[in-house]
Design a protein around this nucleic acid. Structure first.
Lengths: 200, 200, 200, 200
DNA sequence: TATGAATGAGTCTTCATTCAT
DNA sequence: AATGAATGAAGACTCATTCAT
């Protein structure tokens, strides 16, 4: 059956090759979707031959998974880096609004990427797992930041999670703008107040 | 080329045929996903020939779209029917918990269906539109119910939308159960309180 | 095996049905070609059901053959009707030029029809036979006319045939206009002189 | 969708593959006609897989077009190579008869090829163009030969074109032999005389 | 006679994967 | 390590023809 083990790249050159494939794969999949991207395209975009792909990856799906592990977080949570300084200078209301704005800006930038990746999250277990890990990571981050800044409430974990969901949904609402009758400024206010109550 | 117009079924027999295809298509797509279901399978499951499929549907994608229009709502919002009686008998807290439980139960029933359909929502514009229409419809329903039952608050539309998202996310959390460290009973309490504050 | 004999229409109504199919088939085939026309289209254009087609015709090819037998001559030789009066009034030169002009005009009118039918002449034996019969018929016609009008030369049959070919080719040249560097007025003069020499 | 660019074969191996496909395609199309030949057959006859066909050709039609560009001239004008020596040794009458015989012999050899290809000339624009280019090329050839050999007449271009048509038609007549009542030896004489008069 | 729904083999085309070099 | 030519199974879609009504 031919011993087709996947190469673990050690040399610098082959590490680069693998990464080129990963990056090209990620970009194409984000742009056009997993099912509408073929391996030949990925190889071409990565400037390598079609054959070599299968020395670094088990199959096409493997490219998806690994590329999400490498680059996915930028799409999943594009990314709340709330610095300590933010907290020093601002109140919670301002901090939340900063977060929301960053979130929205990022979503707008990677509109199609986000769509395509979220699609896979729903249908592909491996992708779902990566996504959820990234979600947890971010939640934990936030918890730590909140805790470090004097927010003391029980069930912080659950509350932060709910807060993140709120922001995420809000963000979708604003970016995809599907509901004409909705007033987004109002909605932002509603969400901010909601989170503030939550963390109180 | 060929002027293959799509038949609008009139006779009883052909209405039935179309519906068989629709139903079989919906079920298979829910179960295995759109890209992993082929037209031959759909035809076979519907107990018809492959050819007839293309007399009722323009192409495979058309089956997806029409089947979602017919059966999708059961997956999208499976479904909050808060009866007037509920309101007469119960307080908001109970009502919300009833809603949440119904939601969760339904999601559990159609686990894979929901996953596959939500995947398409993110990658397919036609599907996204159907989904969002269904979302609006449900939101409008709820608004009416709340209004009818003495809940008077400004920006009801936006608040209800946020509430629905909260329930939806909560539900995903519980059903897909990805975060081991999360206490779902707590989370339900958090969400219920959050919504109650929102609508106050 | 089901005795699927083809109906010979006797009643007036069924004669009409058959003719509707024939005419629709002929027109569509002329317009789009035999291989790009399907039986459903023909039935629809004829305002009959798809099923009925197979009660009047053995198969699709049969429609082609019969429709050519009925309507083909208009395309094959669209048509040199040199009246006796023409001869009384004019000299051979004028007569030939009249013929050529009529020919060209007709070809221009049924450009695509002619193309499609000639295609079949080359690949389909049944069609080829119909075409050649029609060719002979016209040649015989012309021979008679020439003979009746005092043109006496040996091998009239062969000469007329050559003359007809000359006119036909000339006509293609002018209608399809593929050779930019060719002067068509000159070419007409050349052909007319050629035929006159031939018949002298 | 898929960015399936057509490969321009560079390596010796792939040049050979492309040519095998071209040749097999040409032969099958000549034998059975374009519409009655499928890509699987072509691949099989070429001893390659079906997939590779689409790396060298955009689609089935592309095989037709390219194979005609490569091999078509042998069918279109199978081919009047009137050498200088012919002219030195013979008079025009003999030269013409040599040409005619060569023509007829060639047509007889590739009977079905000629039929099928001429069919496409009439229904397919791309094929028609190739054919007409080949026609022009041959006409130009002949003009040069005649001019080089002291034939001086005005409108040589048009006259040669008419002469070529005459030979072509004659040839069809003889090869396909549809008109039983025609004497072909006479017809050849008629045509030869006709051309001689033309070029005088 | 007529309808039009249904059949299913057949066709083109794509693409993940393998293999010779 | 790398190339890119080759494979061939699989899939969407068509259409001449048949059949139940």
């Amino acid at each position: 059956m031919g011993n087709t083990d996947i190469r673990k790249p050690i040399q610098k050159r082959s590490i680069e090759t693998k990464e080129k494939i990963l990056k090209a794969g990620f970009e194409l999949i984000c742009e056009k979707g997993y099912y509408n991207t073929n391996t030949a395209e990925i190889a071409k975009a990565a400037n390598v031959s079609t054959g070599i792909v299968y020395q670094y990856f088990k199959d096409k799906h493997d490219i998806l998974v690994e590329s999400l592990q490498n680059y996915g977080s930028s799409v999943f949570y594009p990314m709340i880096k709330v610095s300590e300084k933010d907290f020093a200078k601002n109140d919670l209301d301002t901090i939340l609004r900063n977060m929301i704005n960053k979130f929205i800006k990022n979503h707008k930038m990677s509109h199609s990427a986000h769509k395509e990746i979220m699609a896979m999250v729903h249908s592909d277990d491996a992708v779902a797992e990566i996504y959820h890990n990234s979600e947890i990571e971010m939640t934990d981050n936030l918890i730590k930041i909140f805790a470090d800044n004097g927010i003391t409430t029980d069930h912080l974990k659950e509350k932060v999670h709910v807060a993140v969901n709120l922001i995420d949904d809000l963000c979708h609402e604003v970016v995809y703008h599907k509901h004409d009758s909705m007033d987004y400024n109002v909605m932002i206010d509603v969400v901010v107040k909601c989170i503030k109550d939550l963390l109180k």
